[in-house]
Amino acid sequence: MFIRDAVPSDEPAWRGLWAAYVAFYQAEVAEAVTAKTWERLIHKQDGLMCRVAESDGAVCGFSLSVLHAGTWTLAPVCYLEDLFVAPERRGKGIGEALIRDLISTAQSQGWSRLYWHTRTSNAAARSVYDRFTVADDFVRYRLFF
């Protein structure tokens, strides 16, 4: 298993994983948004980036991140917005490897921090995330327009 930047030929595999990820969160994402997201990920536009985990010649997981400026630091901040591993490939260290990949990149590129969130009920993901750091006590508020 290795982790690399997504390339255009990964689109079908990514779309399959993306659809499963969106379904996991019982959400809907319009096709136009999915298409634009893929375009921005591949061209690394708007600070977006996609890393994929590949094993046995197949893409089996991804991390989608946003690199952005921060108001409390001079160095960039990375938000790990989405992380997903194919259900049949879970328990093999792929999610952990995707996070370690981002940590390594953060350290080599001089980013100031890496952060992410998940649902409190997502015990499987939290068991991985807790290996890296403890959850903080912030509460999230959202408005949709």
Rank of each mutant, 00 (worst) to 15 (best):
V66E: 10
T105K: 13
D10F: 02
D46K: 10
N122H: 02
Q107I: 07
L143Y: 07
Y115S: 14
G57V: 12
G47K: 07
S63Q: 04
P76I: 08
Y21A: 09
A32S: 13
A97F: 04
W18I: 11
A135Q: 07
E28P: 00
F84H: 09
S121P: 11
V134M: 01
D10I: 04
M49V: 01
W38L: 06
Q107T: 10
G91R: 11
L48C: 00
R126G: 02
V33G: 01
G93H: 09
S112V: 06
G93W: 08
E54S: 04
E54K: 02
T120Y: 04
G93P: 09
E28C: 00
W116Y: 05
A6V: 04
E28H: 07
R90T: 06
W116I: 06
S108E: 15
A69L: 04
P87Y: 07
I3F: 02
G93T: 12
G57S: 10
M49R: 08
D10H: 07
F24K: 08
D5I: 00
I103R: 12
W111E: 13
L83Y: 05
A6K: 03
R113T: 13
H68I: 06
G16E: 15
V77L: 10
V134S: 05
A53F: 05
N122V: 04
V85H: 05
A35F: 00
G16S: 12
A106H: 09
I94N: 06
L48K: 01
V77A: 08
V7N: 08
E11R: 14
T37L: 02
Q109Y: 09
V85I: 08
F2T: 15
L74H: 05
D56P: 01
T71E: 08
Q45F: 00
W14G: 01
A97R: 11
S104W: 10
V77T: 13
E11F: 00
R90N: 06
A13R: 13
M1H: 11
C60N: 10
T73R: 13
N122K: 04
G57R: 10
E31R: 14
D5C: 00
F2K: 15
K36P: 00
A106M: 14
F2C: 12
Y21N: 11
L67E: 15
D82Y: 03
I42R: 03
A30L: 14
P87G: 08
S108I: 14
C60Q: 09
G91K: 11
P76W: 09
R4G: 07
L74Q: 11
L67C: 12
D101Y: 03
Y25K: 04
E54A: 07
L67T: 15
Q26P: 00
S112Q: 14
R100S: 10
V134K: 02
Y141P: 01
